[in-house]
């Protein structure tokens, strides 16, 4: 029956689209493979605060990735037998930066600045999720414009004019 094929094709398209949506979400939330098997969980459980390694969000647009020197500051003595740590050490010795894969990413035309967000009293967890529970860091929200607007447009009247303005993020 011709009609069967027609319906079949239709179902295939629908399933494909849904699968695509799911897969792209999965891909957004999937943790990328990093050059070093670094675990946030281990470090946070050891009592290290976010701002210890990522010190700049209070004063700069970026949170900052710790320098290799900073890693070695502790790992000169701690857990030096670990092959992953030895790899970090070899990066340090060769003077090469570690090519971390970026997890949370905004496109070029979006200008995100950590400083005012922290200044407004947001926590790291609000956007980055509970990184302390993650062995491998992954994105917990799809950081698209709708997500940003969820907060920005629900502000008090005197603030919303500025915060929901396009120029707040696009320059």
């Amino acid at each position: 029956m011709k009609r069967f094929w027609l319906i079949g094709l239709f179902i295939l398209v629908v399933v494909g689209v849904i699968a695509g949506v799911i897969l792209t979400r999965v891909q957004v939330y999937a943790a990328p493979e990093q050059p070093i098997a670094y675990s946030h969980q281990v470090h946070v459980e050891a009592g290290i605060q976010c701002l210890f390694c990522h010190p700049s969000p209070l004063k700069s647009p970026l949170a900052g990735i710790p320098s290799v020197q900073k890693c070695m500051g502790c790992h000169n003595v701690i857990d030096t037998d670990n092959p992953e740590i030895q790899q970090v050490a070899s990066y340090y010795e060769s003077g090469e930066p570690i090519p971390w894969i970026r997890v949370n990413l905004q496109p070029d035309f979006v200008y995100f600045n950590h400083q005012p967000h922290l200044g407004a009293g947001l926590n790291c967890e609000t956007c980055h999720g509970d990184v302390g529970q993650m062995d491998v860091t992954r994105q917990t929200v799809k950081m698209d414009m709708g997500w940003c607007l969820d907060c920005h447009i629900n502000q008090s009247d005197e603030k919303v004019g500025r915060l929901a303005d396009c120029l707040a993020c696009h320059k």
Partner: peptide, 15 residues
């Protein structure tokens, strides 16, 4: 392109 609350004639390139 639109008018911002601070009187700028904004041009949003990515739009």
């Amino acid at each position: 392109t639109y008018h911002t609350p601070e009187g700028l004639n904004a041009q949003i390139y990515n739009r």
